[in-house]
């Protein structure tokens, strides 16, 4: 083996001098034997390093992967998903950045709350209270770019959609960086700091129907429902697999909103498999009652922006 040290740099290795004492130990071994060796390594990192050794290794190692790692990966993925279900609070580095960048800019505030009425007869005030919960969790979720601001929905699911709350805003006023939760009343866009809970349909301006405002809300609603039902569909196998899971609470990620299931709803899903529209890989959304509230500026505490 001492002869190895004579060729320390790689370039000379490409054209090694013929030396019958220096045999490439793998050169004449068949692929299947090499695979057997890789299978015995059993360490993902070591396998990774093997990829870099030579072209032949690089082409063979992934074949080990499929057989060897897939089981482990699937297991890890399952654990990860189960863990994520339990995580309600996700730190969001972006929200503070957002506040910093846009903090000084004042835009006319025209927040619009949209509530999709409950299928089961929950009153408007109850959906409003669940809205508050959803908002608190979703601090800083408003989209930065573009004219429209569309908050993630909060959706309650059993076997199918029970209840869904969507809050959308067409623009946002940023408070000063020093007083993040204040509502800044800006231009004359009918500013009246309002409480989201107040059930008041009288304030919809006529222009709402003509300038595409209504259409925009419908698009928001549909996209929110699609997102929510798709996520519910994806969660279903995990929930039925983890019998002990009681509080998935919210599975959510940025912009995707909150998907909420309580214990009864979980049980319902386990007992009664979901009705999926097979082609779309989404949970079928049942016939809905929709209610739309349009509000002039709304102060929302805990959003990180007005």
């Amino acid at each position: 083996m001492s002869s190895l040290r004579v060729y320390p740099d790689l370039t000379s290795r490409v054209y090694p001098e013929p030396d019958h004492r220096r045999i490439d130990h793998f050169d004449r071994l068949p692929d299947s034997l090499l695979l057997l060796v890789f299978n015995k390594i059993g360490d993902v990192k070591a396998l990774g390093r093997c990829c870099v050794v030579s072209r032949r290794f690089h082409s063979l190692v992934p074949q080990v992967e499929k057989r060897r790692r897939s089981g482990r990966l699937r297991h890890l993925r399952r654990r990860f998903l189960a863990l994520r279900l339990r995580l309600r609070q996700v730190t969001r580095p972006f929200s503070s950045l957002f506040r910093l960048v846009f903090g000084g800019i004042v835009k006319p505030l025209q927040a619009l709350g949209q509530f999709l009425g409950p299928r089961r007869s929950s009153s408007s005030s109850s959906s409003a209270s669940s809205l508050a919960v959803g908002n608190e969790d979703d601090g800083g979720e408003l989209e930065q770019a573009g004219v429209t601001h569309h908050s993630p929905p909060r959706a309650d699911f059993g076997s199918t959609l029970d209840n869904c709350v969507i809050l959308g805003a067409s623009s946002v006023i940023q408070p000063g960086p020093n007083k993040p939760n204040d509502v800044v009343s800006g231009s004359g866009d009918g500013v009246c700091p309002a409480n989201a809970v107040t059930d008041d349909n009288g304030s919809i301006p006529d222009s709402f129907y003509t300038n595409g405002g209504l259409k925009l809300r419908v698009v928001w609603t549909i996209s929110s429902l699609i997102a929510a039902s798709a996520r519910h569909y994806l969660l279903q196998p995990i929930i039925s697999e983890h019998k002990t899971l009681e509080q998935p609470g919210a599975d959510r990620c940025r912009r995707a909103g909150v998907l909420y299931m309580n214990r009864e709803q979980l049980e319902e899903l386990r007992v009664k498999p979901l009705s999926a529209s097979s082609a779309s890989k989404r949970t079928l959304v049942p016939a809905l009652n929709m209610r739309l509230w349009v509000r002039a500026p709304v102060g929302v505490a805990g959003w990180g922006c007005a």
Partner: peptide
């Protein structure tokens, strides 16, 4: 046995040990 020799080694060490050409 070969697997145990590979484990824990860097790609270069593996090449040196088994006289494998680096053809990248």
């Amino acid at each position: 046995k070969v697997a145990s020799l590979i484990r824990g080694k860097s790609p270069q060490e593996i090449r040196e040990l088994f006289n494998i050409k680096n053809d990248f």
